[in-house]
């Protein structure tokens, strides 16, 4: 009985850890996208995760970013002694699985075909995620009664959590954010911002170094963020639809 409880607890903490891993091109958790196909844990701390992506052709580099992150967040959990990831149904499954489980980097996995590791790619895609989340939050703030122009004046400390809601302190007013979808949008941006590991004074940052948007009207910044957001939504919707078809189809 004890062993079973321990297994169930471990399984739950592995799932929780995996839920922090996003598909970098979609900015959505792999657990919500349905990429985690199977998860098993043993009482002595061996974890095995089977993953699947929406298509056989997902770009190897983004797949690698996702798998490395999954490997790392699960491996460092207390009680995990061994972690094994298996990506199925991908055009380079064998090669990627071998390299990921051996702890290799992308450039070691593709020594003759890659010129370097994935830092630059990762920064590019995370910057877009930041901007997309920024737009969603700003739209939520405007819906809650702020005007767009006052948003760049806000500091990080002006937005505080209050139970299941947020409170914004702007121009001497206290504005609550209560709609659950909007609360989620604000939370998603703040977790990204706080996760940058620096303490920005400004609420609004435009890149991973914490810089503010370029000198232009905030509204045009938002239009750019909106486009990034539209792109993520479209891609994610397509990937969900493709995966659904894929999992419900017989192989010829």
């Amino acid at each position: 009985m004890m062993a079973q409880d321990a297994e169930a607890d471990l399984k739950e903490s592995v799932l929780r850890a995996l839920s922090t891993v996003t598909d970098p091109e979609l900015d959505e958790p792999i657990t919500e996208l349905g990429f985690v196909k199977n998860l098993s844990v043993s009482e002595d701390g061996r974890v095995s995760v089977d993953l699947v992506t929406s298509t056989f052709w997902c770009s190897p580099n983004f797949v690698y970013i996702m798998l490395e992150e999954a490997r790392d967040v699960v491996s460092k959990l207390p009680g995990v002694k061994e972690m094994r990831l298996t990506l199925g149904g991908h055009h380079d499954s064998d090669r990627i699985n071998g390299a990921i489980n051996a702890g290799k980097s992308f450039s070691e996995c593709y020594d003759s075909e890659a010129r370097g590791d994935l830092l630059e790619l990762n920064r590019m895609i995370r910057t877009r995620a930041l901007r997309s989340r920024l737009y969603s939050m700003a739209a939520a703030l405007v819906r809650s009664g702020l005007v767009a122009e006052e948003i760049p004046e806000l500091s990080r400390q002006d937005v505080t959590a209050d139970g299941d809601t947020f409170v914004v302190n702007s121009r001497g007013r206290i504005i609550p954010i209560t709609d659950p979808a909007d609360v989620r949008r604000v939370a998603r941006y703040l977790s990204f911002l706080d996760g940058l590991g620096r303490t920005p004074t400004c609420l609004i940052v435009w890149d991973l170094d914490g810089n503010p948007p370029p000198e232009e009207e905030f509204v045009s910044t938002l239009i750019a963020g909106r486009l990034a957001k539209a792109n993520f939504s479209l891609n994610a919707e397509l990937c969900r639809a493709l995966l659904e078809s894929r999992l419900n189809r017989e192989e010829p």
Partner: peptide, 9 residues
């Protein structure tokens, strides 16, 4: 989904 070199988008 692929290009030369593979670490590029």
């Amino acid at each position: 989904p692929t290009v030369w070199p593979l670490d590029k988008d």
